[in-house]
Computed example of a mutant assay.
Amino acid sequence: MKILEIDNSRRFLKLSIECEEDLWILYNVIKKGDIVYARTSRELKTRSGSKRKAMILGIRVEWAEFQPFTTRLRIHGIIVYGPRELDLEGQRHTLSIDIGSVITMFRESGWVGIDYERIVEASKKITIPVLIVSIDDEEYCLAIVKGYGIQVISEGYLKLPSKFETTSRSSALRSSIKEILNQIADLMNRYGLKILIIAGPADVKEYLYEEVKSDKRFKDAKIYIENTSWSGVKGVYEVLKRGTLIEVLKDHDLVIEEHLLDEFMYYIAKDPRYVAYGIDDVEFAAQSRAIKKLMVISDLVRHPNEETRKKVEDIIKLAEKQGAEIKIFSTVHETRLKLKNLGGIAAILRYPLDRANT
């Protein structure tokens, strides 16, 4: 989650949603009476029939829920802001918030206390350990993506000779690229980064991409390439708005899910008392204050059966209070199927639980 903007009174808060855990946090902090602004679409009647029109609406929240069988959070309420010419105020509308959505939230009393703390805590995490390099034949910028935005590490100019000086220009470009490659390698090693996005408007990014791909120092890195209109810092911010970053988020989520499942299988083989799986077993572990890491498929969080959904929500909230690491498995990954075979919910425990005496 990124905090994109907050006003001095702390009543308006603009956020970018990066993962399913962000949707879970929103679900828990949004209260009835808050106003949420987001891009949406609405069916409008016309003389020739009806058509769906994209717009930004603000609604006063009445309730929020996870939509079954999707990754979306539905927020329902009364429209308080919309295009004046459409006269929509006072009508009901439901916003669908998903990974990649940008929303603005307003709370009359201000964003303070535990709700604000949960949002800030989520924004501080380096949710995606990724380095962005934005480059063309004039300038470059290296920046690390963090929960609250980007941290520019290095930027500069290539200072290449004129395009008419072919030989000297090629030599200078090779020298500049070599220097930038060394910077990339140093940053990825120093910060433990495994994901690299190379962006830019011209063919210099292609050259850098091929050099990175052939460099053994980056053999374990996941490398993406993105076309942008700008280079330098502007290009980095342009990448943040593009689809590539969403793909990076999904790929990184998959790696985390695989590592958690590997750890779970290690403990189940070594000593099954250190794990719990299935709703009833995990509920017992939560009530015993034993959960260290909790894994839940998103299907359970938005289960159509209210009783099941409520039980899963209570387990997650209880585990959160105990400081457990929570991971909601996405519906788009194969890891979800593996967790589903374990009952859709599983936990790695702080200490062994012996169920025989319960």
Results as ranks from 00 to 15, higher is better:
M1W: 06
L4A: 14
I6M: 12
N8H: 06
S9I: 05
K14W: 06
E18G: 11
L26M: 07
V29M: 05
I30M: 09
K31W: 01
K32C: 11
G33V: 03
D34N: 13
Y37M: 15
S41Y: 13
K45R: 12
R52G: 02
R52N: 07
A54H: 14
I56L: 05
I56G: 08
I59K: 06
E62F: 09
A64M: 05
F69Q: 15
T70N: 14
T70E: 13
H76W: 05
G77Q: 06
P83Q: 01
E85I: 12
D87W: 04
E89Y: 03
E89G: 13
L95P: 03
S96F: 15
I99K: 08
G100E: 02
G100R: 01
V102G: 02
I103P: 00
T104G: 04
F106D: 07
G110F: 12
E117S: 13
E117Q: 01
E117G: 09
R118P: 11
E121A: 08
K124N: 12
K124G: 14
P129F: 06
S134N: 07
I135E: 01
D136Q: 03
D136K: 04
I144C: 02
I144Q: 09
V145K: 14
I150R: 05
E155C: 04
G156K: 07
P161S: 10
R169T: 01
S170W: 05
S170N: 15
S171L: 11
L173N: 03
R174S: 14
R174T: 05
I180R: 08
A185V: 01
Y191V: 01
L193H: 01
K194N: 12
I197T: 01
P201R: 04
P201F: 00
P201Y: 02
D203Q: 14
Y209C: 00
V212D: 06
V212N: 00
K213Q: 01
S214H: 10
S214C: 06
K216A: 15
R217P: 00
F218A: 00
K219D: 00
K219M: 01
I223K: 02
N227K: 13
S229I: 13
Y237Q: 02
V239W: 09
K241A: 08
G243S: 01
I246W: 00
V248Y: 03
D253E: 07
L254I: 11
E257S: 07
L260E: 05
D271V: 09
P272D: 08
Y274L: 06
Y277T: 02
Y277S: 03
I279P: 07
D281L: 01
A290S: 03
I297G: 10
I297N: 14
D299A: 10
R302K: 15
R302T: 12
R302Y: 11
P304W: 09
P304Y: 07
P304T: 06
E306S: 15
K311F: 09
I315E: 04
A319Y: 11
A319R: 05
K321V: 04
A324F: 04
E325H: 15
I328E: 06
F329Q: 04
S330Q: 01
S330G: 10
V332R: 07
T335V: 04
R336W: 12
L337F: 08
L339I: 03
K340L: 14
G344P: 08
A346M: 03
I348K: 01
L349F: 04
L349K: 08
L349E: 03
R350P: 00
R350F: 05
R350W: 02
Y351Q: 11
Y351K: 05
P352D: 02
